[in-house]
């Protein structure tokens, strides 16, 4: 798929910075919520085959907690905040102060808390991105699902589906202290949004 007409390495760097700024603000928000340090890895930006996207979070059948929202405005796209079960439990414990369910039977309160966390994080990701680019970007109301990673992520690939079998993914991993990855932020801009992002950031478009 030819998303970029030249300058591809530079454009990938620019998108990495988009992930850095967005997720950096989201990590700060999460750290404030949990009252403990939250680190993030350097974002990866890559054209990923549809099949391989779910591998990032444990495989197509791995059960994950996902908060999905659609980005609307000048540069539309799809955004996921994805947690595995153990980190979700830790976050709930840290935030609500009680033991979350051992199995996948989350209570209304737990689901609503997770949804709100996703909402806050995605909001801070997007608002910093909107400030940085000067583009209007607003999130839809988030929606939460606890299900197979493949089933969840394929939902964000529809816009890329008409163009090929890969999607451009800006992936940022959260780490809590020295622990394993806590969660992932996936931003999948619609194919049409890249030119707008690049133009807003002053990248020359041939």
């Amino acid at each position: 798929m030819n998303l970029f007409n030249g300058n591809a390495d530079f454009k990938m760097d620019v998108l990495r910075e988009v992930g850095n700024i967005g997720a950096g603000n989201a990590a700060t928000a999460l750290s404030l919520l949990l009252d403990k340090p939250v680190d993030m890895a350097v974002p990866t930006v890559s054209l990923v085959p549809f099949e391989a996207i779910a591998e990032r979070v444990g495989g197509s059948e791995a059960v994950v907690i996902a908060i999905f929202l659609r980005v609307e405005g000048d540069a539309p796209g799809n955004m996921f905040f994805i947690l595995n079960r153990e980190p979700a439990r830790r976050i709930l414990r840290g935030l609500l102060g009680f033991e979350a369910a051992e199995n996948d039977d989350y209570s209304e309160l737990e689901l609503s808390a997770l949804n709100e966390i996703g909402n806050i994080l995605a909001g801070s990701y997007l608002s910093s991105l909107a400030d940085f680019t000067g583009l209007h970007m607003s999130p839809t109301v988030p929606s939460l699902a606890v299900d197979m990673a493949g089933a969840i992520l394929s939902y964000g690939l529809v816009q890329f589906g008409t163009m090929g079998d890969d999607a451009l993914l800006i992936d940022t991993t959260f780490l809590e202290g020295q622990q394993e990855a806590e969660g992932h932020f996936f931003l999948i801009p619609d194919p049409e949004s890249f030119d707008k992002l690049f133009r807003a950031l002053g990248v020359p478009i041939e």
Partner: peptide, 23 residues
Amino acid sequence: VGMADLNVGTGGAIIRTTGLGSC
């Protein structure tokens, strides 16, 4: 069978696809 993929099998082979959502 992967996403956006198809395949055939015979004689007791199991054909599987994982993680169907809207697909």
